[in-house]
Amino acid sequence: MPRTFTLKFLRLVLVVLVVTFITFGLTKLQPGDPVSKIIPFGTAQQKAELRTDLGLDKPFIAQYGKWLGNFVQGDFGKYYDSKQSVNTVIKTSLPVSLELMLYAQFFALLIAIPLGVTTAYRAGSKYDRGANATMFALLALPNFVVALLLAIYVGAKWQLLPTQSNVIPFPLNPLDNWTYMLMPVVALTLGQIAVYMRLLRSDMIATLQEDFITTAKAKGIPTRRILWRHALRPSSLTLLTVAGLNVGALIGGAIVVENVFGVPGLGKRITEAILAKQYPALQSYVAIIAILYVTVNFAIDILYSVLDPRIRNARSVA
């Protein structure tokens, strides 16, 4: 068990390294001199000094090494112009994005699981076909469309919820926090429901064909319990993996939704950094997202093997 996990962990570290290395390389391929961006009107002398200060005169690998060293020590760098530290920006924006994604993930699963279970059980029924058609349509509905529809009707036309970009932190005022979060969360959740529901449904349909389901039935276990105790458990393992992999889509969705609603989360900050060509900051953001994604999946991998006795034992034997 420890060995496979060490191996997995090493591979994930490798992924983060490769991703950050590539993005770092891309920033260096940029046309234009970052120094000229910081002090556009500085003298050649000043520029040269700044270049040495920033380490821009060193070879590429050394620059990457320095960035990596700082990053590992928790120094995420600075914005070019204002000397604003990336750490402060992350401190305020990351919790907002995490909150958004957690809510979305939670509600998506909360709705998708009962839907998936019941439609699988009644596969082919009117209810199933209706739910399926709805979900298929939801899959084709990009989250920015949902976001814009909400912004137009709920926000602008009917003025039910605020569209302004203030997010009050949850501890300060939970209710306010929710009124600001509601629309972004809905926009992010809808598509995820469809993804989870459809995967769970087809997985459950397969599970319900398994012999052990007939065994449970032959024991006189009521249908409800068979569905939730016997069939969902193995299917939920796949759902769990999918939920982990889906974090990638969730991050992408959060970036879009935050931009549409002006939510001051990491996604919004990333796009701002892109537009302002704040490459050092961007570099750290990308790294943080990669780490976030990889960590979630690593955690799920561990959880998975805790939940699935077959894997658990295979590992402890190995």
Partner: peptide
């Protein structure tokens, strides 16, 4: 449901697939 398991029961052909693997 009152009969299954209580009054009549069944042993299936393939014990490899007839038991719930995660219980």
């Amino acid at each position: 449901v009152e009969y299954w398991g209580d009054q009549m029961a069944m042993v299936f052909q393939d014990p490899m697939t007839s038991l719930n693997p995660v219980m």
